[in-house]
Design a protein around this nucleic acid. Structure first.
Lengths: 184, 184
DNA sequence: TTATAATTTCAGGAAATACTGAAAATACAG
DNA sequence: CTGTATTTTCAGTATTTCCTGAAATTATAA
């Protein structure tokens, strides 16, 4: 059913899935759809991967919740077909967005709450100081990410390809605008 | 033992741990050490979190493998004490480095191998094209990350704080160097 | 409508993972 | 060295997570 090429990729993403908070099934379904040249229905997926129909159903539901697969229909066929977005940049952004919504935002909210409380002793003061550092780092990073996020995929790709030159530009900006006495 | 403030943070990171590929124990130990105003030994950690001594030992071992905690000794005490690096940027970079070594590099290596094989049919050709897209995205992203990585923490922090202005700079670079006909 | 195809839900079993206590290993003071 | 404090290992158990098959639900063709 699957070519050896596809199979290796699928198995790898099954493993990786577990390290990213989704189970093997979900990782494998995603990988299969990612490589497929045409949309697949649940039966095809189940047969290719050796999973029960119900397991595939649950996996697809989770992938949809992550906005990582798209549901569509073929004319004259009443089964549901699935595909992944074609643009890998788009996928990357979707993933980042979901990770943010599910993990970053709740963490920020907890940190903000904790920082509003008044510290009872030195240990609590120290804990709050650490929380503030973490809070600021996360806010800074995500804020910056938001900025980059607004750029079009094409612009982003080109910028990324600039590689070293971007760094040079950043260093320059640093020196020009920030009184560059520190080393890079 | 733990203040309510610390406890909430610790419990939250226990939950988050599971989504990041480490178990609850490891997440909680890390969170506790992160907030602590002084290094802690394994008994103190176990008592604070209600884990067995052996569980704490395993958790610390894992955190050391991730380079997320540092082992040190107090004079006149033969027990081992642990602390987290103080600079949150440093922590962020360590995490990124480890994620890369454990997840990104193996994936890239698999993709590279797959791309070297000759495709048997159109489906395999399509699969390889998709793998190339993914490969290029990952290489581009990590390559760029490497560049940024070389900047000092201070420079990075300042750049991040620039926020919108960095984006402007990037857009400018795009227009100047890349024949900017596309929208941002 | 009714019949049938397709999907989802969910209770229970299977598998994987986490955690503990006891024993072994290690480190070090005397 | 010897004895003791400390850490690590690991087999067994507890817990969690995953996965399945059967039943329920939903959608649609006739």
């Amino acid at each position: 059913m699957m070519s050896p090429l596809t199979e290796r990729f699928v198995l790898h993403f099954g493993e990786m899935g577990s390290r990213w908070g989704v189970n093997r099934t979900v990782g494998q379904i995603y990988a299969l759809l990612f490589l497929s040249s045409k949309p697949l229905n649940a039966d095809e997926i189940g047969e290719a991967l050796g999973f029960s129909r119900s397991n595939v159903s649950m996996g697809l539901k989770e992938l949809q919740a992550w906005h990582l697969v798209r549901l569509l229909h073929q004319t004259g066929d009443r089964r549901e077909y699935f595909e992944t977005p074609k643009d890998v940049w788009d996928i990357f952004r979707t993933l980042a967005e979901e990770k943010r919504r599910r993990e970053i935002e709740p963490t920020l909210s907890l940190l903000r709450d904790a920082l509003l409380e008044s510290a009872a002793d030195d240990d609590e003061r120290h804990a709050q100081a650490r929380m503030r550092e973490m809070h600021d780092l996360i806010e800074m990073t995500t804020g910056w990410f938001d900025e980059v996020h607004r750029l079009s995929p094409e612009t982003l790709q080109k910028l990324m390809r600039l590689g070293a030159r971007v760094t040079k530009l950043l260093e320059m900006a640093d020196r020009l605008r920030l009184g560059g006495k520190e080393p890079v």
